[in-house]
């Protein structure tokens, strides 16, 4: 089994996603940023763009980020704190 890590996508009024993921790509301030399991601790500012999440089974989910936000990764846990998000169509 590929190594996975925990992802929480939190909006001010709801938790949009919570679960394990194999990889995560986020639109960081300086360009797209790919996260795999056991990434070094990081805090990144996010800009509007596409968030791509691949879960342990290989299923890919795309979210559209419409606002700014933050990504934090530590202890093999990724936390995304976003203002607003568009779900995959």
């Amino acid at each position: 089994m590929a190594a996975s890590f925990h992802v929480t996508v939190a909006l001010p009024g709801k938790v949009e996603y919570e679960g394990e993921a194999a990889s995560l790509v986020v639109p960081a301030a300086l360009g797209y940023l790919g996260i795999l399991a056991h990434h070094a601790p990081i805090v990144a500012g996010l800009t509007p763009g596409k968030i791509t999440l691949r879960d342990a089974a290989g299923k890919i989910t795309d979210f559209t980020l419409k606002s700014n936000g933050f990504l934090e990764f530590s202890g093999n846990k990724a936390t995304l704190m976003l203002d607003s998000l568009e779900l995959p169509a």
Partner: peptide, 14 residues
């Protein structure tokens, strides 16, 4: 020991 992107001050303010 976080990696910070883009930079300390912008993240701090945000």
């Amino acid at each position: 020991y976080y990696i910070l992107e883009p930079g300390k001050d912008i993240i701090l303010n945000g």
